[in-house]
Design a binder for these strands. Structure first.
Lengths: 204, 204
DNA sequence: ATTGACATGTGACACGATGTCATATATGAT
DNA sequence: ATCATATATGACATCGTGTCACATGTCAAT
């Protein structure tokens, strides 16, 4: 988390710095990114950077988190739209994400994140699901899911269902970028796999 | 890949260096590991290191690959043992992996790898499945899988089935370490999710 | 308007890591 | 014994990080 000093900064200066950070993280993945470049682009002295953030990772995850915020809202919206059908909601969400691509810089940032995912990055990215199992947000999601459709005995299994969906959805996401699939291919694969998930991998 | 020079080295010296590398990668994740430490532990001059490997990543992936080799054979064995039931084979494989833990150093190495997985690391680790879609090994696996049990129309879908299983298995694996689950919990979760995969997330 | 306490800005610096290269040494065939 | 080729070595240039002593700004109290 950024330090208070950063949050006290005038809007403009803050955005300027975040933009410079995104530029650097779009250029190269986290561990190759250099603070020297960020401060150069932002036109601030090196010392100031450390006034605002602990280190490189601190800006990185702050940025990632900021860019995920509205995705979370969008997901809730999709879940309502599909009357709690979680797989339909996820599929639609995925589709829309691919179609209305963010600007190039943000896209490169996402690519770099996906191809170098750590567990921490995956969690930040997929925080629309798990983040924190007792959070307000998670509660709302679980409430919205139509359990009637699901092949479960107890509520406890919802957790496993979401885990499975996250795992498969995320892997599709990563594959799309690592194997440079077209949107069409990516969505086809995604749909096939989601159907297999729905109906089971084994014959009944 | 290591350079020829490295492969020409006497067995003992090679093992010594690999052991030193593993020690460093067990201590910290890839991007924090330092070549300085490796050469110090191995007792070789810095220049020699670059005689043998391109860079840090080069040793890292070589090590990872070496340690995965016999896991691949073991997986084939499991698949035969379970008459081509891929989910039973994977579950058994997972169980055995957890139970007969490798030595502490290798375990720490694996932990660091799992908690900082990049797409490349995941692929190296899970090469018992996909590695290269046209490899000899993949062919054998596909041949061994009992397609009769699977809910598929064409062979093409086998690929998706394995993708799904990899995704879910791998995530369970990462969770086991990141959330420090006991072996018992880990295997319980794994089994529940594999059953959900078999029978489908949705009611029929 | 002056003071002082506190917050923020600044960049030189100590430290450590990387990859290279000129030079030294070993090896093995003729 | 000679020479070509392969290997060994460690000093070095370069770059990146995080810190710290010092400079500057802010603002409430007098």
């Amino acid at each position: 988390m950024p330090k208070q000093t950063f949050l006290n900064l005038p809007e403009q200066k803050r955005q300027n710095l975040m933009k410079a950070a995104e530029e650097e993280f779009a250029r190269v993945p986290l561990h190759e990114a250099s603070i020297a470049n960020i401060v150069k682009t932002a036109g601030i002295p090196r010392g100031s950077f450390y006034q605002y953030f602990e280190d490189k990772e601190d800006v990185y995850f702050y940025l990632l988190q900021e860019e995920t915020k509205d995705r979370k809202l969008k997901f809730i919206h999709k879940l309502k739209e599909h009357n709690g059908d979680i797989i339909d909601a996820v599929t639609d969400f995925y589709y829309e994400f691919l179609v209305e691509l963010p600007d190039e810089q943000e896209l490169d940032f996402i690519k770099n994140a996906l191809l170098n995912v750590t567990h921490k990055i995956e969690n930040a990215f997929m925080s629309m699901f798990d983040e924190n199992q007792t959070s307000e947000y998670t509660n709302e999601i679980v409430k919205l899911i139509d359990k009637g459709r699901l092949n479960i005995q107890s509520d406890k299994e919802i957790f496993h269902i979401t885990q499975i969906i996250i795992a498969v959805a995320f892997r599709n996401f990563v594959e799309k970028f690592s194997r440079e699939l077209s949107d069409k291919e990516a969505i086809e694969n995604f749909t096939i796999e989601m159907n297999l998930l729905k109906n089971g991998l084994y014959k009944t």
